[in-house]
Design a protein around this nucleic acid. Structure first.
Lengths: 168, 168
DNA sequence: CTCCGTGCAAACTTTTTGCAACGGG
DNA sequence: CCCGTTGCAAAAAGTTTGCACGGAG
């Protein structure tokens, strides 16, 4: 199921930053490969390419954007869907709901850090948005309230919806 | 576009509570009827039935749940989709994303009051969840941050994802 | 009488599945 | 060689649209 903000499903609790100069990307692939192999899967060229696209984008991307991977080589739709589902399963990718009909995907928070989203209602573009710790502490308090009511909270999502700078 | 937490699109800024004993439901229909007519539409039997289902549920419901309206009378799928789209347009209904493939709908916040959701990853059920004002004040602060970055915030959504009491 | 609203069926879009061929280890 | 992975095509699922009929105003 999509929208998983939970802790790392794998056992290698590594958390990688994004946007750094070097090394980090290698770590990313090492980590993803490890998680796949831990579930008996290979880190194939297609999967690698998918992860590259997600890492380069730095924001949730639609399936269509992912299809053009590996510098023009076109990945079969079915393979893309399968790869993404597998990457979601091993906790390397997260599915993001933007309110429209298109599925969007981003690297799992265990790889990029916890964040939220700004969703443009016009063009559908989704940008990452990090919030102060104080806010997350408030969220934690709400989690307690919900759990007191018998609901087991695994994750949360907080999105702002509106118009991005390009569409206003 | 779904997920509209914004202010009342219509001009009759009425806000109705839910779960009260009587009168309120009538007000609900009066308000919805007014908003439809303001856009040149009728409050037909089908639309009335759809609103009834949403009001009775008190939580976001799937299209399938809406199809069985009016005590067994089955509404055509196309009509349901059309009615819902129209009700969304006039600000009487809001579309809710639960992460699965099924569309869900609830009465607009201008009719039920601002709230958030508990989404069960297992059965897909969505429950309403109200949060303290203090939290919303924090949200307002974050809205300012986002707008400072050039993003015009129309609404926000905050959902907790996990397992409901029945599925844990 | 004039439109709006409805049902039915067909069309569309997005996602999933079956199957044979491919290829890494 | 074995078995995970891929591409292609077909199938499914959900949503939208075209069209003619029926009913409200």
């Amino acid at each position: 199921m999509p929208e998983d903000h939970s802790a790392v499903p794998s056992s290698d609790g590594q958390s990688l930053g994004r946007g750094h100069d070097h090394g980090v990307v290698d770590d990313l692939h090492v980590t993803v490969g490890r998680r796949l192999r831990a579930s008996g899967m290979r880190y194939s060229r297609s999967r690698f390419a998918v992860v590259e696209v997600l890492a380069d984008a730095g924001r949730p991307v639609t399936l269509r954007e992912i299809l053009v991977v590996d510098g023009g080589r076109r990945l079969a739709q079915s393979s893309a869907y399968r790869n993404l589902a597998e990457l979601v399963d091993v906790g390397a990718v997260r599915r993001v709901d933007a309110g429209d009909d298109r599925a969007r995907f981003e690297l799992h928070e265990s790889l990029t850090g916890h964040h939220h989203h700004l969703v443009c209602d016009v063009c559908g573009r989704v940008e990452d948005f990090r919030v102060p710790d104080e806010f997350e502490r408030q969220v934690a308090a709400l989690v307690d309230v919900a759990e007191g009511g018998g609901f087991r909270v695994d994750a949360h999502r907080f999105d702002m919806l509106g118009r991005c700078a390009d569409c206003r």
